[in-house]
Design a binder for these strands. Structure first.
Lengths: 244, 244
DNA sequence: CGTGGCTTTGAAACGGGTCAAGACTGGTGG
DNA sequence: CCACCAGTCTTGACCCGTTTCAAAGCCACG
């Protein structure tokens, strides 16, 4: 899993940061950035490692710099639902609360840009650009969570899998590249995200491939020749954004 | 449905507002309140009326003063999922975006305290107390949405219904009153919220009553003698807040 | 005393879960 | 270089919970 062939040397200078323009610091001016620069620290986890356990203290806020983290919520008997998938530039943490309701796990090798919670809360008070951006990001997350509620409550297994693949292709293909991507998570994690079992995910992947909706390249690589077909399989509105 | 026997005369003065201490204006000082006072307007809808259609312009932000509104998201073929249930003090609107992705419907007779979008956005810039509170509320909504994802993805029909009833009882029984409440929505709306069919909701309500977990009083009234039993039926962690 | 909307109940069908093998992949050590 | 192994994924057969389809009951209201 440690496929970190290009271990991109993390810059300590914010202005060269790969997520600079999309993260919680996106709207900061140079002087604000230098404040951030002074209080941030980087930390990395290997794929599979736990970042924080459900219900434990979370004494930092952070941005995903590189890799993929998952948020999951579990019931006593072990049933588990993923409630968030954090990709580079996404935010982790909950200002005003000192523990997390979710288990945070590194799905791939992961690097976070972290701030102590107290320092970050001071930042929120003093730096409107950070608070504004955080509100914007929280509202985007809320929209995404609600979109996922529609998927979990009403979509069929086939539509669920197709929707997930489409989302990954869209996030990977930011500016009109080819519709091809590496899945950042295992089948198991996909099942946890989609409210399915791993067997059902596997069967639907096979069915979508058999039907010519997607092509696979190894276990993790996916692509689609006809994004419209995939969007249709995902049960998307015809007027939905025809990206990818 | 127009059971508005106590048509509480809405005060125009914020300081006497029933949701004053929990809404987006909760942290405002007297002088800030007077600014709000000047730009707000009230508007009411009858049960069943549509406030805004999915995808239409939403040129205001608002707080629920009285009644209950629902947010729903639909697919082309008509499948519908409720993604939010707004009770008094809850916030409606999306600063920074001019249209809504959800259909907003009055589930009961409804009164909103509204602000023009532009005026509200100005308020956000000038009144940190409002912006702070809005961020806090957005993060609470996000937690609630994620909790609902666990329900939609992993809970059984019986657990879903029990969870909903428990949530209603908890919100109605704010400070240790008896565990009794009126359901603010129809069976149909419950089904839409829980990702079930109306028939399944009805069957599970019957089963919970038969099993002595709840008692019903007419179609809308519910109560429970043993909140622990209901929490268990809802699949809650033993260490979950034992409220109600 | 109908009428229409909402709710309950029943019987049958079906989608996804469960259980159980088996196949593929990448890494390790002989 | 190949055999082995553990982890991951795929496939098959069967089962069960929820949906679907259909009909009847209840209630408020005119």
């Amino acid at each position: 899993m440690a496929r970190r062939d290009s271990t991109l040397r993390i810059e300590t200078d914010c202005s060269a940061c790969p997520i600079r323009h999309r993260a919680v610091c996106a709207q900061c001016e140079p002087d604000e950035l230098s404040v951030l620069n002074d209080i941030k620290t980087y930390r990395s986890w290997k794929a599979g490692e736990t970042v924080v356990m459900e219900g434990e203290p979370l004494d930092f806020a952070a941005s995903v710099v590189q890799g993929c983290a998952t948020l999951t919520r579990s019931m006593e008997d072990g049933r588990t639902q993923m409630v968030g998938l954090l990709l580079p530039s996404d935010f982790l943490g909950r200002p005003g609360r000192d523990r997390t309701a979710y288990q945070v796990t590194a799905a791939t090798d992961l690097t976070l840009c972290m701030f102590r919670r107290s320092a970050f809360e001071a930042l929120l008070r003093d730096t409107p650009h950070v608070a504004d951006r955080l509100l914007e990001m929280a509202l985007d997350e809320l929209d995404a969570a609600r979109e996922w509620m529609l998927l979990l409550g009403r979509k069929t297994a086939r539509e669920k899998v197709a929707t997930f693949l489409l989302m990954i292709l869209r996030r990977a293909t930011l500016d009109g590249g080819p519709a091809r991507a590496e899945l950042p998570i295992t089948r198991d994690a996909m099942a946890t995200y989609l409210g399915l079992t791993i067997e059902t995910v596997s069967r639907q992947m096979t069915a979508l491939r058999r039907d010519g909706v997607i092509a696979t390249d190894g276990l993790r690589g996916i692509s689609t020749a006809d994004p419209g077909l995939l969007a249709e399989a995902a049960g998307e509105d015809a007027d939905g954004a025809p990206i990818v």
